[in-house]
């Protein structure tokens, strides 16, 4: 009895010893050096792994930060300034100032303004209906309304408005990761600079057709009439392909263009007092 116990203990101990020696050498041989700062930086990143920075996940961004000399092109839109400052502190670098952005939908074609000319009965997937045909209205540029963007949002910051059939971004929840921008097959979502108090003015239309055709397809289409360009004192508005675009970095949110737009294609959001809060793509643009 005793000898059995002894043999067992000794043989197992020997086995353990040999294995540990082998393991030690193997560990030495295949050791991977990891910069401890990667872990430190990662601790300050949001761990959402949303891909908004252009990397597969937060850890990949942290690795890239440690590797790069400057912070050129590296930014976590979700963590924002706070996360970037921490990362810069850990690495002893200076974080570039990146303006926070928010997703906006560049279409305001509600059923009232953009009459439905057909009924789509296929799978509710924008990619499928976009490759099939123009969509339920005569506008070949506008929102399709099957909600690929809403499904792509992992932060619950978007929903489809049942009445308008258009996606709505909830500004407070949007972290501007850009997933919806990639999901939209017509590229009708833009990440725009956040203005003071979340205010923003933008052209809620993407129609590049000539004025007449655009207007026929949708009442609130931008017709490229140049009125807003003329009224803007800051040169923030340009027209290309019959479509106006307001450069958010030049825009001073003066609202002159909003008043001038004959089709109400320019939308103002979060301006007191006549605008209710957090309803970015509503028909509240009219004066």
């Amino acid at each position: 009895m005793n000898s059995t116990v002894l043999i067992t203990v000794v043989s197992l101990s020997l086995l353990a010893l040999v294995s540990s020696v082998i393991l030690y050498f193997v560990a030495q041989k295949f050791k991977v050096f990891e910069d401890p700062r990667i872990d430190e930086i990662q601790a300050f990143l949001p761990s959402a792994n949303c891909g908004g920075c252009g990397f597969a996940g937060c850890r990949n961004l942290a690795e890239a930060m440690v590797r790069s000399d400057s912070f050129e092109g590296l930014n976590c839109p979700v963590g924002g300034e706070a996360a970037m400052k921490e990362a810069a502190r850990i690495l002893g670098k200076v974080a570039p100032v990146v303006d926070p952005t928010v997703a906006v939908v560049l279409c305001n074609g509600t059923p009232e303004s953009r009459p439905r000319t057909s009924r789509y009965d296929g799978t509710a997937d924008c990619r499928i209906s976009n490759s099939l045909y123009i969509g339920e209205s005569d506008c070949s540029y506008g929102c399709i309304g099957n909600g690929d963007c809403v499904r792509s949002c992992t932060f619950g910051a978007m929903y489809l408005d049942e009445r308008t059939g258009l996606p709505v971004v909830i500004d407070e929840k949007c972290v501007s990761c850009g997933a919806c921008v990639k999901a939209c097959p017509r590229h009708r979502i833009e990440l725009r600079k956040k203005g003071k108090k979340d205010r923003k003015i933008y052209v809620a239309c993407s129609n590049c057709d000539k004025g007449g055709a655009a207007r026929r397809a949708c009442k609130v289409a931008c017709i490229g009439c140049n009125k807003c360009v003329n009224v803007c004192k800051f040169g923030a508005i340009t027209i290309e392909n019959n479509l106006a675009y307001i450069d958010a970095s030049k825009c001073t949110l003066c609202r002159k263009c909003v008043a001038e737009c004959p089709t109400n294609a320019i939308v103002e959001v979060n301006f007191p007092p006549r605008v209710s809060k957090a309803e970015p793509v509503e028909e509240n643009a009219s004066i």
Binding site: G122, R127, I128
Partner: peptide, 12 residues
């Protein structure tokens, strides 16, 4: 099931 809808998307 809309099999072909998705297959067409995947194929393209």
């Amino acid at each position: 099931r809309p099999l072909l809808d998705y297959i067409r998307l995947g194929k393209s």
